[in-house]
């Protein structure tokens, strides 16, 4: 049961590409909400000041679900995102906002590490339009020591979402010395291909030293490029790099003719040539949700 119902510690308006979601309503702004807390304890958490504390240790906003939806509509925002910390710990709050938002024609997207049971995931899928799931690594030992939870439940949860037919993208923050083992990256990509399909977008992110791990260097770009090469080599069709810009891996390419159909500069959409989900050049279907 959440201890932070109605009291987020972060309220922000962000580009949807920041979640990151690249195949869901590109260019839309989201109302991003987060409360304090997390059910994991990743040692390299970029938001640890909010995730590794109790709600009473922070100064929070007061935002009941009805108010959140009303304010989103007032500000012309069509997507509400549950992100930054871990929406699992404010699941009830997120669910209530999502139900209201859905009934009012808004979309709901979630960025989560998805360490939760299957049944609530299925409930969640009924009101959520897209998930950006953090698959932090592919080693049980790594997950237990660095993330603080076993890996298998996360993998099962990801497969559940796929089974429910909700749009899914995967995110892995690559942290120097912790999870940049290329053998494990390959195993992870193979698992994704086998269990989720080649068309699930995958994002490899660059770690930036801040606060807690501020003496660790940021991820080398060549390491990220290696991760991407491995993913493409394994057969995954949509592989992106985030926190690195400008870079060719920010763009979306048609899997068939390799034309860049969406161009991005970091989180900013600079052009979108997809027409009704189809490549303008070779007419290949590009998977994703491109319109409201």
């Amino acid at each position: 049961m959440t201890m932070a119902y109605g009291n987020p510690c972060i309220i922000s308006i962000d580009p949807i590409e920041k979640l990151p979601l690249h195949h869901f309503l590109p260019g839309e702004r989201t109302l991003s909400i987060a409360t304090a807390g997390c059910n994991l304890r990743c040692l390299y958490c970029q938001n640890w000041q909010q995730s590794q504390v109790r709600p009473d240790q922070l100064r929070n906003y007061n935002l009941p679900p009805a108010e959140a939806v009303r304010k989103a509509k007032e500000n012309g925002i069509k997507v509400i995102a549950y992100t930054y910390t871990e929406p699992v710990v404010f699941w009830e709050y997120a669910m209530d906002i999502s139900e209201r938002a859905k009934s009012e024609g808004l979309k709901n997207v979630v960025a989560t590490a998805l360490f939760m049971n299957r049944e609530p995931i299925k409930e969640w899928c009924k009101v959520t339009d897209a998930f950006a799931v953090a698959l932090k690594g592919f080693d049980e030992d790594f997950y237990l020591k660095v993330v603080g939870a076993p890996l298998k439940p996360v993998l099962d949860a990801i497969v559940t979402i796929k089974g429910e037919g909700v749009w899914l993208e995967l995110v892995t923050l690559i942290v120097p010395t912790l999870n940049d083992n290329m053998k494990q990256i390959r195993e992870m990509c193979l698992w994704i291909r086998r269990n989720l399909g080649a068309q699930v977008p995958v994002h490899f992110g660059r770690f930036v030293p801040e606060y807690k791990l501020r003496n660790l260097p940021r991820t080398p770009v060549t390491t990220l490029e290696q991760c991407r090469d491995i993913a493409l080599d394994v057969g995954l069709q949509f592989v992106y790099l985030f926190n690195v810009a400008p870079h060719d891996a920010n763009h979306t390419y048609c899997p068939k003719c390799k034309t860049p159909v969406i161009r991005r500069l970091g989180f900013k959409l600079t052009s979108n040539e997809i027409q009704r989900g189809i490549c303008p050049k070779c007419k290949t279907r590009i998977p994703g949700i491109w319109q409201l």
């Binding site: 040692l43 010395t177 912790l178 030293p209 807690k212 791990l213 501020r214 003496n215 660790l216």
Partner: peptide, 8 residues
């Protein structure tokens, strides 16, 4: 203290 790399 078993600190992870980079953490003060």
């Amino acid at each position: 203290l078993s600190l992870p790399p980079g953490e003060p």
